[in-house]
Design a protein around this nucleic acid. Sequence first.
DNA 1: CCATCTGCAAATTAAC
DNA 2: GTTAATTTGCAGATGG
Lengths: 96, 96, 96, 96
Amino acid sequence: MTDTQSKAPIGSSTIAADNLHGYIQRIEKLEEEKAAISEDIKEIYLEAKGNGFDVKIMRKVVALRKKEPGERQEEDAMTDLYLHALGMLLGQGGGK
Amino acid sequence: MTDTQSKAPIGSSTIAADNLHGYIQRIEKLEEEKAAISEDIKEIYLEAKGNGFDVKIMRKVVALRKKEPGERQEEDAMTDLYLHALGMLLGQGGGK
Amino acid sequence: MTDTQSKAPIGSSTIAADNLHGYIQRIEKLEEEKAAISEDIKEIYLEAKGNGFDVKIMRKVVALRKKEPGERQEEDAMTDLYLHALGMLLGQGGGK
Amino acid sequence: MTDTQSKAPIGSSTIAADNLHGYIQRIEKLEEEKAAISEDIKEIYLEAKGNGFDVKIMRKVVALRKKEPGERQEEDAMTDLYLHALGMLLGQGGGK
DNA sequence: CCATCTGCAAATTAAC
DNA sequence: GTTAATTTGCAGATGG
């Protein structure tokens, strides 16, 4: 197994540079797509605004709907955590 | 009364609610796509890392390429100016 | 009123450089203090751990206590927002 | 059995709770101080901005000064290497 | 237009 | 050493 293959990224060969190029290009492509989507979202908000809706509230609603499921998870995690702590206080294994 | 028809969700709440729903759904769909793309980007960085590249530097490179050359130079010049004012920048050629 | 006084920070005079120096020094001083406090906090956690407590849980508890008051505010804000949205749907002022 | 005395909050929950309380209080006190310092720092940046300095650049400068010179050069060299591999870095002197 | 605030992305740091 | 969590910096939006 040669050095070129195993690890060394740049400096030893142009293969590494090609790889880097590939990675960067793929990333930049995806970032463009992401930016385009952000644009689309903004346009929808504008359209909604044009139809009389309140953009700020809409954003809040979207944020809320995104959070709701996660919040339950967080609560569960806290419950587990408290149970764990309780177990510790009542004499279970030496607190880690 | 033209107000009801022409512009507003107001007054005919069902239609308004439907429209709102539509907007929200379109937005949430797009946000999902955006999140998926972010995931893809992260994976590419991971893959690159697995092949020996330095993720932090790659991010830096991507950021640099995103900036207009002029903007970049301006920022660099300003930074140099500040460093110079502080008595740093003793002539270490390296400059990023 | 001369240029030196009004705005231009660097390039025109050494006064600006001195000011910059002062700002940076004050900032760095404060950041050191901040880092020292972070160290102190870490030590307390270690001490607690040495006495059998679970550091991860303690961190969660501290975080929770920090959030609790704010969460009530957030809930209130959301309630207001919903009331507002409801008002909008029922025919009150044209959504901005 | 010395365990109860020597090490653990376990088994004597009141004492443990008291200890825990003490730790939490000390931590919260320190975190308040830390937050206050962060506020002070922000104010200094604001003040500098009011006197014509560029906050973003100042942050950059502070970050640069925090890094070991060697580390900094290494990072810069690596960035150059990557940019070079991508065919950029055509000789535009400015480079920070 | 400036300042403040929220939400997002990145970097640093801690836990495993 | 790698994932996960806290913290920090940045950008866009909002209100004065």
